[in-house]
Amino acid sequence: MSSWYRPDPLTRDLIHLINARRHDHGDADAAVDTLQAFLDQDREQDLLTVLAALDEEMAEWLFDLLAEGACSVVIDGDPEEKPTYAVLAALELPLQANLRLPLGLKIDPVATSDLLHKHLHLPSGTVVMVEPRLLTDATLDLLTLHALHEHISALADSQRRQCMAARLHPPVESTAYLIFELIGSPEPGLPESIEEEDRQALLAGLVAQCGELAPAPQMIEAPVYAAYAMFDAQNAVRLHRLADETVAVWRDLEPAVRARIIVHLHTQCGNGVYMPVWTDLFDPELPDDYGPVWTSPDVWVFTADLPIEWPGEMLTNRLLAEGCTRFENHIVEAPEN
């Protein structure tokens, strides 16, 4: 007799909120509470599994709520007063090329707090706390949604601020992230835009503190939840590693085989929000039923707000730079597409 699996209460809550959203009567606050409960239990992978299985509209909704739930928490206070929030944010900044190791990327937390308060036009009474070093994409790649949520929840409970990374890792791309927290914010979100004058003044103030930054204010956009910065960092690191591994296997082939090998770059269309990417090496002289010479493991990337062709284009550029010119991009569509 087969056993019947009964989902745990939290999983049932997740199923309920997804079904409620499908029928247009979902409660966003209740959904955030449920997602935060998953993160409190360090069940991030369960949420990502669900995210990969949803349709595009539902996946985009859950993706944004997950970022908010990880990085924005209510500060306990008088229930009769308007709530205030602790928000974990990130500002993407351009780095100079050819950085020297070991990295510095140090900033003055007090001066930077003043810069952010002034040029993001934050409400009075909002306390700004700043990570004392800019974080690279390879450093953010090592974090998790659980770690982000744990960090901002501790600050919301008035605990002492801890650094988010013990050491910096060399960047994969010329990007650094200014991580900061808003404590006592009247809103759970972040400013949606930065005026040109503020953008220039903000970057000028940061460049004065950290010479490793590039003076390119046009590259600066409005701050986002730190979860989005982590997703971008993980995308960059994972795709670069996939390219490195593919090129390394390709280079190890015998010259005659390498000359005729075609690299296939596969992107699983899925829901266009969270999906796998992989590569294989195909020898056209082998029988069709032989299959690829080598296939990489799947690399999962977050592609919300990015074109479906983006992972293939990024991998193509890396392969070309390494001298590999025989490749094909394959977008593998889901059956319903």
Score class of each variant (00 low, 15 high):
Val172Leu: 06
Phe38Arg: 09
Leu62Pro: 06
Glu313Arg: 12
Ala31Trp: 10
Gly69Asp: 09
Val247His: 05
Val299His: 11
Leu206Cys: 07
Gly211Ala: 15
Glu322Lys: 13
Val110Gln: 04
Ser2Lys: 12
Arg43Cys: 03
Ile331Ala: 09
Leu206Lys: 03
Arg133Val: 10
Thr279Gly: 10
Arg167Trp: 05
Met219His: 09
Arg22Gly: 14
Gln268Ser: 06
Phe282Trp: 15
Ala59His: 12
Glu322Gln: 14
Gly211Pro: 01
Asp29Leu: 13
Ile75Val: 15
Leu54Glu: 11
Leu115Thr: 00
Pro287Thr: 10
Ser296Trp: 03
Leu65Gly: 10
Leu306Glu: 14
Asp24Tyr: 12
Val110His: 01
Glu254Leu: 10
Asp244Lys: 08
Gln96Ser: 10
Leu91Asp: 05
Asp76Asn: 06
Asp29Thr: 15
Pro9Gln: 12
Gln162Cys: 01
Ala90Arg: 04
His23Cys: 06
Asn271Phe: 08
Met219Lys: 09
Asn337Ser: 11
Glu195Gly: 08
Val207Trp: 03
Ser3Lys: 07
Asp252Cys: 09
His121Val: 05
Met314Asp: 11
Met230Glu: 03
Cys269Phe: 09
Leu39Met: 07
Gly291Pro: 09
Pro9Asp: 14
Ala28Val: 15
Asp198Gln: 05
Gly270Met: 08
Ser185Ala: 12
